[in-house]
Structures are given as C-alpha cells and as structure tokens.
Design a protein around this nucleic acid. Structure first.
Ligand SMILES: [Mn+2]
Ligand SMILES: [Mn+2]
Ligand SMILES: [Zn+2]
Ligand SMILES: [Zn+2]
Lengths: 146, 146
DNA sequence: GATCAATCTGCAACCGTTGTCAATTGGAAA
DNA sequence: TTTCCAATTGACAACGGTTGCAGATTGATC
C-alpha cells in the first residue's frame, strides 16, 4: 500500500474527496503488519475520531481493495482481514487468537499437479495461497486466566 | 468418512440415536466428492425427506466433524464446505461457481520457513493448507446466457 | 407398550457485511 | 468567498450463513 500522502494524491486523481475519515484510515493502515479486521481498523481510528462510522471504514477499505492498494483476506477467522502488503506472500494464522504473520518464501514449485491425463483438472489457476495454521507464541503459553 | 453402516455403528457405540435423518445424511455424503455446503446437503436429503430441517443437517454435519469423520472447510465461497475425505490433501476452487476439486500432491517440502533468527516466528504449526484458485472448465467457456 | 433422555423442527437471534437514504460536506467554478 | 452539487457520511435496516432455544416428537431400553 502506498503512503498516506500518495494515497491522497491517488484519490484526488480519481476525483474522490479527501476526507478526514479517509486520511485517518490511510494512516492507521500504513506500515501495519497486523492484518486488522474492519472492526479493528474502526476501533483504532475511532480513538482520535469517535464520530466515524463502521460503514465508512468498510467503504474505504473496499475502495482501497478495488484499487489494488489493499488485499482483503478470508483466513477463516470470522471477519475478513485487510492486508496493506500487496506483494505476493503467504500467511501463518493462529487458530486460537487469530494472529496473522506474513511469510515470504519461494514456493514457485508449488503448482497444480497434472492429472494422469496430463491436464490440470480443467482448471485455469490464477493464484496459489498457502496458509500455515497453528498456535502463536503467546497461545502456546497460556496464562492461568486466559 | 466411514460408510453409512460403519457410521451407524459408531453412533450407536457413542450412545447416539440412529435416526432416519442421520442415516439419510450419511448416505448423501458417502463417496461424495463435491464438497457440499450445509444447504446443498439439506436440499439433497430433502428430496426424499421433505420434513427434515436445515438445523438438523447442521447439527449432524457438526457432529460428524467433531468426530473427525468429516472436515469443515472455509474456502472463501460464502458457506462452509463439508469434506468426507479426511486424508491429507489440498484443493482447487473455482472463483466463479465455487466448484472444488481434491488435489493430491506431495508438498512435504512446503514448510514454514525459519526467520533470520532461526525460529518459526514463535509459531507451532499444526497444518498447512494449499488452495489453488482460478476458473473451472465450464466457467472458462461461459455460455451466452450465464 | 411405557418411559424418558435424546433428538427434531421451527423460529429467533447472532455476526460480519452491505443496501439505503436523508443530511452533510469537499472542492471546482464563478 | 460564496455557490453549488455530486460525493460522502452516519444511522439503521436487511442480508446470508450459522447457532441458540424451547416445545413437540421419537428412538432405545426395559
Ligand atoms: Mn500479509
Ligand atoms: Mn477435499
Ligand atoms: Zn495466538
Ligand atoms: Zn466454475
């Protein structure tokens, strides 16, 4: 995802208005590696802008996603996660708390294998997603009361 | 997943009742490779048992899943998909119609890479899922009206 | 067959997300 | 700067998938 300043410029070019809400969302996401849900973005932005609505957060996240500045991920944790990292990469997900970490690895040899008839099951594959699931550090060492 | 007869025996052993609804669901799933949603199982069973409720289908699918006889998959197609194939394998998913096919391939070299500090990002990984996404055969050649 | 806990059905409620629309607002034009 | 209007906002309803609930029904055991 581009910087808040670059996104501002991009939105302006597209004829979209630069609202304080949008700028706050740009800032909340920039450089973030936590893969927040829309709700998490909302809570983070709402600290400094209590009047913002969840609907506006969804709208802006969807706008960014359709511009390709953000990737919406469904990692099976209930809510969609938004990823400002648009480089090709994979993920580790904690089954207990939903924590997500980026995984950079060259899995170029992971390709859809051909059937015995030499074809790809009739599929034309456009992306390959690898998700590692397990427990994160803190969920492996649960405190007595959590 | 075991055969309907074996599942019947298994349920009996667990002290669970053998109801016509459960048997019909066992039969609908046995040998199936379509990865149906709960709704799809419901529609299939309801042909011969119109009075069955969707709630019962969910209940039985969840029971089978918690017994390990079935795997519940979240492949990002909206509804959960239920897989009677409990062997380790991967999937190809059609982005357009949601069709799912099993992929058997040895990706044992696909492992969570270690960080520069030599650790696995603090994670203890218990499973690795590979999902290939793209278009199935029929969705690559859409008819004029679909 | 009688008993009774397990199960079933129908419906309400839940969660994450999107549709709707009146009120508000950013920014181009004058 | 002021005007103007389309874009945006926020509140709330509605949606699809799933689960909670409660009363009616039924399978297993005797
Ligand atoms: Mn990521
Ligand atoms: Mn499968
Ligand atoms: Zn965790
Ligand atoms: Zn298809």
């Amino acid at each position: 995802m581009k910087s808040p300043a670059e996104l501002t410029e991009l939105f302006r070019q597209q004829g979209l208005k630069i609202t304080p809400q949008r700028v706050a969302i740009f800032q909340a996401l920039h450089g973030s590696e936590v893969h927040p849900s829309a709700e998490a973005v909302y809570e983070s932005v709402a600290v400094g802008m209590p009047s913002i609505s969840l609907r506006t957060v969804y709208q802006t996240l969807n706008d960014l996603a359709s511009m390709g500045e953000l990737v919406a991920l469904d990692l099976g944790t209930g809510a969609a996660r938004f990823d400002p990292n648009t480089d090709p990469h994979h993920h580790v997900v904690c089954d207990r708390c939903g924590k997500v970490r980026d995984i950079y690895a060259d899995f170029t040899d992971v390709r859809l294998p051909r059937s015995t008839k030499g074809e790809l099951h009739g599929f034309r594959v456009s992306s390959t997603e690898i998700v590692f699931r397990g427990l994160c550090h803190s969920c492996q060492h649960p405190g007595p009361d959590e």
